[in-house]
């Protein structure tokens, strides 16, 4: 069994008690009962990006499932996959490419759910010289972190564009070079730099790479095979809370943004930015597929597309990286 420093003897006993209580009386509201403590490792700083989880926390969706969930913040230098391997976090928010890399290094991960059906990578440009198709990248200067070159390479391969016809300018993750005309476009996320530019009064044009064949599941829920074998109840309870939280989020993204600010007053967030970000990530997370099957869903086809794109990124994975058993249980219940 994985070493679990978060789990004290007392909380183990309490978990047993909670399960007993639920089984015996079929009570849904677990607030009064002792809770099992687990942690969810987020992939970035607190923001509306994880607002569905905040709703699950705030409205007691997890508590009802007998869980007390600690939300561990990410950051520019924060490890995401290692705490899941180490057992500090039961579930981590990763992405298919990072998960694939970790699995290559021997991490026993499975993807339990996919929050972002569409990868959030975009090519952002300004209205004067817009980039709306991959072909329009030719002859342009693109500002991006050199580390993301494989991402651009994959996009070019998928769309028959010669990457050598694009001038890559290594920049830090900031819209500033675009605004000063140093570059024509930026490789960034739909939900951060374009949001910042819009708040500053600009109207950036974004081309979602997912619309041009770049299929990499993002904001994926990962857990270890060990947890899948031994901690199913907790995984189901955690994912059930997530699903309910994100469904509530979709109902009212403004409320989700407001909750984010209320829960994290020290994060230095602005309501305006969070509202915009919350609204802009809806099309990435919800689709006909999730409407039909529920939040977090994927199909063999989307997995196949992912495997193909990941191969372009130099990551070899097999379909059994995705494990639907937990989602089946959540949505089947």
């Amino acid at each position: 069994m994985t070493h679990r420093p978060m789990m004290s003897r007392r909380s183990l006993l309490a978990a047993g008690g909670a399960t007993l209580g639920l089984a015996g009386f079929g009570l849904g509201t677990g607030r009064a009962l002792a809770q099992t403590q687990v942690a969810l490792q987020l992939s970035w700083l607190h923001s509306a990006q994880f607002a569905g989880s905040y709703i699950a926390q705030d409205r007691g969706f997890w508590a009802e499932g007998g869980l007390e969930v600690a939300l561990l913040q990410g950051g520019p230098n924060a490890p995401v996959e290692p705490p899941v391997v180490a057992g500090t976090a039961l579930i981590g928010i990763s992405a298919a490419d990072y998960t694939a890399a970790a699995v290559e290094q021997g991490a026993p991960f499975r993807i339990l759910g996919v929050a972002m059906q569409k990868n959030p990578f975009v090519i952002a440009s300004l209205p004067d010289t817009p980039v709306t198709t991959p072909a329009e990248l030719v002859g342009k200067k693109i500002g991006m972190a050199l580390a993301n070159t494989p991402v651009l390479q994959a996009l070019c391969t998928l769309n028959g564009v010669d990457i050598n016809a694009i001038e890559i300018v290594p920049t830090q993750y900031s819209p500033q070079p675009l605004l000063t005309g140093e570059v024509d476009c930026l490789l960034c996320w739909e939900t951060d730099l374009p949001v910042a530019m819009t708040i500053e009064g600009l109207s950036p044009v974004t081309m979602l790479m997912a619309d041009h064949g770049y299929a990499v599941h993002s904001q994926t829920y990962i857990a270890t095979t060990d947890s899948l074998a031994n901690r199913r109840a907790e995984l189901v309870a955690l994912m059930r809370g997530e699903v309910r939280g994100w469904e509530a989020y979709r109902e009212n993204t403004d409320a989700a943004a407001e909750l984010t600010l209320r829960m994290f007053p020290d994060a230095g967030l602005s309501l305006e930015t969070q509202r915009l970000q919350a609204a802009r990530q809806v099309p990435l997370m919800f689709s006909d597929l999730t409407d039909a099957n529920g939040f977090g869903w994927w199909t063999d086809e989307t997995v196949a597309a992912n495997i193909e794109t990941l191969a372009l990124l130099g990551r070899k994975v097999t379909p059994d990286l995705w494990d639907r058993s937990i989602l089946d249980e959540v949505h089947g219940a």
């Binding site: 700083l45 819209p175 910042a196 602005s270």
Partner: peptide, 12 residues
Amino acid sequence: GVLTVRAMRGLD
């Protein structure tokens, strides 16, 4: 430090 990251990303 947390706020620094936020400010740089947010063009603030």
